[in-house]
Design a binder for these strands. Structure first.
Length: 187
DNA sequence: AGTTGGATGGTCT
DNA sequence: GACCATCCAACTG
């Protein structure tokens, strides 16, 4: 329900701004493949490559509105916590309780939370999200569902790119979804 | 309801 | 060695 676009090497907010590196090389490949990176030392973020080979563009999946598999998302979230820090049984119970009280709409409301909810990490980089046999798939909206209204706004957390790139309205969200993250969007 | 700061490690100059 | 495409707990009011 929420994404951001990163358009290429000229986009100073993009990981492609330094040219081809070992981290970003999947972006230089064909469209439809996952690019997962680590931010702030602890959160994974899922992107999908969007342009033909040689043009390093991608879309960051910022939020998903959970409709199904909600308990699995809570489980994945808890498991990831356990992988990060050692905790005694009491702390695990506390965390499980806290995570269980999070409303379903907020379980994947943020790029780090999307990966925590779906158990996505950097090892998923290079996965074909359009292949039926893939462990990570993104399907087209069903033909019988109408196109929802889309809100736009500047991308989040890219001030370092400078005013010109930071202000571009390349953040997109479905109007009215309770699962959209971060600051409110305009139209 | 809104603000602040700590956690934590890879990536690039 | 600086900087992050973030999240959450602990505070203020």
């Amino acid at each position: 329900v929420e994404v951001e676009a990163y358009i290429g090497e000229t986009d100073l907010a993009s990981h492609a701004r330094f040219g081809r590196t070992s981290r970003n090389q999947v972006m230089y490949g064909p469209a439809g493949y996952a690019y997962v990176y680590l931010v702030y030392g602890m959160h994974d973020c899922l992107n999908v490559v969007t342009e033909p080979p040689g043009r390093p563009a991608a879309v960051l999946i910022r939020a998903v509105e959970p409709l199904d598999g909600i308990e699995a998302m809570r489980g994945s979230r808890l498991e990831r916590l356990g992988r990060r820090k050692r905790r005694d049984n009491e702390a695990v119970v506390r965390d499980r309780d806290r995570i269980h009280r999070i409303p379903a709409a907020h379980l994947a409301s943020g790029p780090g939370l999307v990966c925590a909810a779906f158990d996505i990490d950097r090892s998923m980089t290079g996965v074909d999200v359009c292949a039926a046999a893939s462990p990570l798939r993104i399907d087209a909206r069903p033909a019988d569902e109408t196109q929802p209204a889309i809100l736009t706004g500047p991308r989040v957390g890219v001030g370092y790119a400078g005013e010109e790139w930071a202000r571009r309205p390349w953040r997109f969200a479905i109007a009215g979804s309770d699962s959209v993250s971060g600051p409110p969007l305009g139209d």
